[in-house]
Design a protein around this nucleic acid. Structure first.
Lengths: 157, 157
DNA sequence: TGTGCGAATGATACTTACTCTCATTATGAT
DNA sequence: ATCATAATGAGAGTAAGTATCATTCGCACA
């Protein structure tokens, strides 16, 4: 199964499910049918999605369960919550299920698109952040580098 | 607490008020007493603050007016809204009222601290982001580079 | 300094993203 | 297959943020 998604995900679909299962098990969570469908809805989107996106894409899932399971998936390191856009939070797979990347956040419509920077720059950023964090007694987990502006659709409006 | 704010703000207090007034006027907004007190509450904090922070620091301000005026200040480019921490949004002065900087966001307590990176790195980041944005037809306004982790207080928890 | 118009205020009602509760159902180990 | 335990889902509940609107204030002009 090849697709443009492969440029972002270093994993095949079955490997993704295996990795998710492993991470859930490591936190004493079960990989139930509902959670599998949730993972597949996020995978199918191929970009950060909101809860309504997911409920529309997989109408069998109860909103309350989706909220609860997004929380479980986040706690297990499967999913990242992006709060940059207004209104709803956005969700996408966490690293290393998805390659390290960043976001173009549209200040008008709130849409979020993934982009990639070259490794050399990433290394410089990490080095500088680590130095600054150490000075503040801060324990780094991850960085988020987002570009805010107007997307192609909203740009001329 | 030393006056570390001076290292962040390139403006004196009176210049700040003048700059705010100018930006508001440019958007046909008035610099009223309430808005002045709001600006002073944010200035006094010296770091990103939530709406409850502001209401506690300046009890005379009505919450509804604070919400409305934070919106006005954001629209006028006086203030930036930071949605990284959970629960409440955080607010701080926008550039160039505050020097360009980034955030240490604690994933446990949600606190946000300002940090600075060297100009050379900033330039590299901007260059790379501009290139990536151009490819996507995206019009950049600003970037946000935040480090997520555990602050000194929450670190061992 | 006084007058008038439109913007700003603030108390309150409202919206809604998200969480909690709990009886029922599904899951995985044995 | 059985059982203990975790997960589900429908609905009630919470709280951050927004809309409403009568009153008050700020600014422009006289």
């Amino acid at each position: 199964m090849t697709s443009s998604r492969d440029t972002k995900s270093p994993l095949s679909t079955s490997d993704l499910h295996a990795a998710v299962s492993l991470r859930l098990a490591h936190h004493d969570y079960r990989y139930t049918r509902g959670r599998r469908r949730l993972v597949e809805a996020i995978l199918a989107a191929g970009q950060p999605v909101t809860l309504p996106d997911i409920v529309v894409a997989a109408p069998g899932l109860a909103p309350s369960s989706v909220y609860r399971n997004l929380d479980v998936l986040e706690r297990s390191g499967v999913v990242n919550r992006i709060t940059a856009g207004g209104g709803h939070a956005y969700f996408e797979f966490a690293e290393p299920l998805l390659s390290h990347h960043h976001h173009l956040v549209c200040v008008d419509c709130g849409s979020i698109e993934d982009v990639f920077l070259d490794d050399e720059l990433e290394a410089s950023v990490d080095r500088s952040l680590a130095e600054v964090a150490g000075r503040a007694g801060f324990t780094p987990l991850r960085h988020s580098l987002d570009l805010h502006g107007r997307c192609a659709g909203c740009g001329s409006g």
